[in-house]
Computed example of a mutant assay.
Amino acid sequence: MTPQPAPVGGTTGTGVRTGRVEVRYFAAAAEAAGVQEEHVDLPPGTTVGGLLDALAERHGPALADVAARCALLVDGVLHRDRDARVGAAVRVDVLPPFAGG
């Protein structure tokens, strides 16, 4: 049986509160992830790097390679620092470099 994700603002089996974030992938990131968007439950204190690592673990090395070059918009704000906290974000956009623009 596939475990169901914790509800938004729910708890994990250990009682740690989680938050759900919508992750949207664009261009090469979507191709590497195999999806254009998904919802991910994050424990408190998750960093940008922690989120990227979790996504790479979920989708494999192709996404890890692309994500290393991506910009992340966390609720519309650019984050490049892997140690920055995701906080109570609602949406994270994974944007690979685009040519020509």
Rank of each mutant, 00 (worst) to 15 (best):
T2E: 13
P3V: 14
Q4K: 08
Q4C: 05
P7A: 15
V8L: 08
G9W: 13
G9A: 12
G10N: 13
T11F: 12
T11P: 00
T14W: 06
G15N: 09
G15S: 09
R17C: 03
R17K: 10
R20A: 13
V21C: 09
E22L: 15
Y25M: 00
F26E: 06
A27R: 07
A27W: 07
A30H: 03
A33Q: 04
A33R: 11
A33W: 04
Q36N: 12
E37Y: 01
H39Y: 04
V40Y: 09
D41E: 15
G45H: 02
T47L: 09
V48W: 04
G49C: 05
G49F: 09
D53Y: 00
A54K: 11
L55A: 11
L55T: 01
R58M: 09
A62L: 12
A64Q: 11
A64S: 14
A64W: 02
V66S: 04
A67T: 08
A68I: 04
L73I: 08
L73M: 13
R80A: 14
D81M: 08
R82H: 13
A84Y: 03
A88P: 10
V92G: 03
V94E: 02
L95F: 04
P97A: 03
P97Y: 10
F98L: 14
F98Y: 13
A99E: 07
G101R: 04
G101A: 10
